[in-house]
Nucleic acid binder design. Structure first.
Lengths: 197, 197
DNA sequence: AGCAAACATGTAGAAGATGACATGTCTAGC
DNA sequence: GCTAGACATGTCATCTTCTACATGTTTGCT
């Protein structure tokens, strides 16, 4: 009765509730580290955002401070209310949130460049995505090596990340081919507006 | 000198410079409409964000007010400096910006749900992505019908959007199969933490 | 003449995110 | 005994974005 409206964002809240569910009681410090290691591919937050949010969540009854350890350490535990909230978000919230992608913005504006410049950009995109793909596939392989079975937290996200990165590589190649074809036919092509006049 | 540092974000600036390059001189009102129609799939901004940004860009010399029309209309034109800035961003800036995706966050936390709930979520994801795919493919088809050749502003982004959406559909199907397989083998599976205790 | 709809531009306040600043504790090694 | 590094928590200023408020003009229809 109060927190039950999440037409608004609250993704950070959900991410923290998820980590607390998966990894058990943890401090703000632990959660910050966990963010860096795991959820970082999907959502980013620094400690300066996490600490205040934890305080608010505690005030809202979604988590409680179970223990105060040494060095001022506060160990948070998820409450029943917090679990319900997380479950509700996962099952009922349709992710509609703004899809803001610098990559896609660059893709959008690519035809404004001269073909040769556009090709340079696309080659860099392809190289970056290929490197990232290797990175993600290593993560995937090391998870399998440790004998973990698929279905752990992060596994589906990792799969999604790998598939999306492969798509980016394929896109960059196709776009480069299109531009090369255009150049061959038109001799010039491209609007070239922002290039040297 | 001075504006040449874009380690910071400035994606909105770039988007506006791109639209001014592509569509020629335009007012804040025009640009707001153009955002809704075209770039919206890639970056969102309302007039309350666009007007102040245009004022700052004019102050920075990236654009100028060419004409003051009726109804207080201001028509902005991109300057040489603005063109250079756009070109520099497109060719030199590596999109590293935060990749925050609610969809991926949901994917990340999916294993926390009971298998049956997870399957419900995945079916909804698949349905949403399929609908969106149809939408994008219609956009693509209508662009072709109008006799436009590939290589216009937005075309590469549209292709990227279509490919990414197809990937999402494929991912949702694969994830659902994984969960179904787990359920069959384990009888229970899933940590089910946030479900009814 | 009156009115609605589109044209057109702004401001204000709240929320989220980022990077820098600030402070202090405990442990392991020298 | 000292000191570096990990542990641990917080605040603050700034920026971006979002929703809502606020204002006024021109056109076209009735």
């Amino acid at each position: 009765m109060s927190i039950l409206e999440y037409d608004d964002v609250m993704s950070l809240r959900v991410a923290l509730l998820g980590l607390l569910t998966y990894a058990g009681p943890a401090s703000g410090y632990d959660l910050t580290k966990a963010f860096e290691r795991s959820i970082n591919y999907v959502w980013q937050a620094g400690h300066s955002q996490i600490y205040p949010e934890l305080a608010k969540m505690a005030a809202d009854g979604l988590i409680t401070v179970e223990a105060q350890g040494t060095r001022g350490r506060k160990t948070y535990t998820i409450t029943r209310e917090g679990s319900d909230e997380l479950r509700r978000w996962l099952t009922e919230h349709t992710p509609s949130g703004p899809v803001r992608s610098e990559r896609a913005l660059q893709a959008f504006l690519l035809p404004l460049l001269e073909p040769s410049d556009a090709l340079t950009v696309l080659r860099r995109v392809e190289a970056d995505a290929t490197a990232r793909l290797r990175e993600l596939e290593e993560l995937f392989a090391s998870a399998r090596d440790l004998g973990a079975e698929p279905g752990n937290v992060g596994d589906f996200a990792l799969d999604l990340g790998i598939k999306n990165t492969r798509t980016t590589v394929a896109w960059a190649r196709a776009a480069a081919e299109t531009i090369e074809a255009t150049t061959r036919t038109a001799g010039d092509g491209g609007t070239g507006a922002p290039s040297g006049e």
